[in-house]
Each structure stands twice: as C-alpha cells, then as structure tokens.
C-alpha cells in the first residue's frame, strides 16, 4: 500500500481537483498509438516486401516459384532451389529437434530430481540466448569437420551405388557443408524454444491426472503417452510450429554451414541454399532485378513464416513464456 500513499503525497493540488486533465488524455493517446504502431510495423514489413519484390514477380510470373535458374548474367531468377532448401533444412530440424525437445521436457517435468530441475532448465534456456552467429562459428569450425570425417565419408562409402539411398545420402565432395548439416545445427537452435514451452505445458496439467494414472499401475511411458500428451497435444503442436517458424527464417548459422550452392541437388549431403542464406549472401552486391528477386524471396519467406506463426499462436494460445 505504501506505493499508493507515495503517489497520493506526490500529486499536486491541481491534479487532485481536476482528475481528467489534458495530460491524462495525452498519456492514453500515446499508449494507444504505441500499441497500434506494432500493427503498422507488421503491415509495413508486408507492404515493403510486396512492393520491393513486385518487379520480379511481374517479370517472371508464377514461374518465379518453380524455376531453378539463378543467373545474374542473363537476369533470370527462380526461387525453387532456395524454397526447397529452406523447407528441407526446416524439415530436418523438426525431425531431429522435436523428439529432442520432447525428451528434455519429459525429463524436466517427470524424471529430474528436484535439485536438477533448475540448473538444467537454465542451461537449456541459455542455449536460446547464444547468438545465431556463434552457432554458425561452432557449426563451421567444430561440427563440420567432425561431420565430414565421421558421418559423410563413412555413410557415402556405404551407400555409394545403392538405389535411392545412394542418391539422397551420398556426398560427391564430403566437405561437411550441406543441407543436412544446416538442418542439424537448426535443430539445436530450436530445441530450447520447443522444450521450454512444452515443459510449461506439461507443468500446467493437474497433478491429480498423473497421480491417478500412476495409481492404476501405469508406467511413466504410459502416463506420458496416454495422459500427458493427449492433454497438452494441441499446444505441443503449436510449440513445434513456433520452432518451425524460427527454423524457416534463421539466417546466420545456416549461411555458415549450408554451402551456399545455387543449384539443387538430390543429396542432403550436398551444399544448397535457403531463402535467408541467399538473401544474406547476395543482397549487398545486388542491383536492379537481382535485388528485386531477392526481396521477392523475402516476400515468400514472409508469407510462409507468417502462416506458420499464425497457426502456432492460435494453437499455443499464450503460454507464460516466449
């Protein structure tokens, strides 16, 4: 209550006599405008992407989405390899990252002894605070050489000549860079987000439900599978899509390790590029139609992530943390 008393003492006589002063209106107007500014900002980003990319969309039409040509000499641009690269890296990140995140959330809520919860939670959340460029450095200088020596080379020699597998998992030049490497680094980057939201969701489930399941003799697996996951299912899908939104737009770490090749390869061991890495690499040197094509790529990325994030937010419905 003491804060309220202070406020009373601080008020000037005029303020007490005239409660609805001009400054009061002004403050409300300022805060309302600030809130609407957020809306204007997102609309502004959307409009600037559409306007900036318009020349490329008009020039190449729907073929911009499906063309694989990216030729600065003849001014021909197509988005297909970058779109495929973006979706493939994000998909790999989800396939690896989601089970990891669920495992961590289950450990933190069901298995960890009390003293371990806080430090492990903090460690996982700090993983989210590490800047993406540092993931890029770690990826390029530590992960890539190990990945080339212990995964790409042995796997390539195993799969060489095999049908299908020999195409998808074969590195022509096992440099360690490539779509799969980028996907794996992305997986570690999205784990903290998915894991902490899932943990919060699991913690909100009433203990009674868990205890009754254990009471009728369920194992931990059965409690998780038949009680916790169905209860938290929708929001876990939401959390996953939030992670997907991040994976699609992540730039720096991917640019370091994806290999930045403009052509499309059937092998996930081969270098490729994503929309974000293409923009990061070429935008500063781009002029005219190339710049427009890059903004058009950005526009595609905007609408894809926008759709994913809208679904995610509708499913998660405001969890305690980001």
């Amino acid at each position: 209550m003491s804060t309220a008393d202070d406020a009373g003492a601080r008020m000037s006589r005029a303020q007490r006599i005239k409660p609805s002063s001009g400054s009061d209106k002004l403050f409300e107007l300022a805060s309302r405008s600030a809130a609407y500014f957020v809306l204007i900002l997102l609309a502004g980003i959307m409009i600037s992407m559409v306007i900036g990319g318009w020349p490329a969309f008009r020039e190449f039409g729907p073929g911009f989405l499906t063309s694989s040509v990216w030729d600065t000499q003849s001014e021909q641009y197509g988005a297909w390899p970058a779109i495929v690269g973006t979706l493939t890296t994000a998909l790999i990140a989800m396939v690896v990252g989601v089970p990891l995140s669920l495992g961590i959330a289950i450990f933190l809520t069901q298995l960890a002894p009390g003293w371990m919860k806080k430090p492990v939670s903090t460690a996982v959340e700090l993983l989210a605070a590490v800047p993406s460029i540092i993931y890029g450095m770690w990826g390029l200088f530590v992960f890539v050489p190990l990945f080339a020596a212990f995964v790409q080379i042995p796997v390539s020699s195993l799969t060489e000549g095999l049908p299908i597998v020999g195409t998808i998992l074969y590195a022509r030049s096992p440099s360690g860079l490539g779509i799969l490497t980028a996907g794996l680094i992305l997986a570690f980057m999205i784990v903290p987000f998915i894991a902490s939201i899932t943990r919060d969701m699991l913690e909100q489930i009433p203990t009674v439900l868990r205890e009754s399941a254990y009471g009728i003799g369920c194992t931990t697996w059965e409690v998780v599978r038949y009680v916790l996951l169905p209860q938290a299912g929708v929001s876990i899908i939401g959390a996953t899509m939030l992670g997907l939104g991040r994976a699609l737009g992540e730039t720096m770490a991917v640019t370091f390790v994806v290999g930045n090749a403009n052509r499309l390869s059937a092998s996930i061991f081969d270098p490729g590029s994503t929309i974000a890495s293409r923009v990061a690499n070429e935008f500063n040197e781009a002029l005219g139609m190339q710049m427009s094509a890059l903004i058009a790529l950005g526009c595609i990325l905007f609408f894809v992530t926008f759709a994913v994030l809208v679904c995610a937010r509708l499913l998660v419905a405001r969890v305690g943390k980001i």
């Binding site: 809130a35 609407y36 957020v38 809306l39 900002l41 997102l42 502004g44 980003i45 600037s48 992407m49 306007i51 900036g52 939030l242 939104g245 991040r246 699609l248 737009g249 992540e250 730039t251 974000a276 923009v279 990061a280 935008f283 903004i295 950005g298 990325l301 905007f302 992530t305 926008f306 994030l309 809208v310 995610a312 937010r313 405001r318 980001i322």
Partner: peptide
C-alpha cells in the same frame, strides 16, 4: 483491438530477423 495487437506482437516476436533487415533497407 488489444487482442489483435497482442496477436500481431507475438508474430513479430518470431519474425525472421533478416526480413526486418530488408524492411529497414527499403525504408
């Protein structure tokens, strides 16, 4: 209105940062 601002703010929270770079470049 507040619900809409909240929703859009949450979207902006996870928007790819490179797009914000592009936006400010054109602006």
């Amino acid at each position: 209105a507040a619900d809409l601002v909240r929703f859009i703010n949450d979207i902006l929270l996870s928007a790819p940062s490179i797009l914000i770079g592009l936006f400010v470049y054109t602006l």
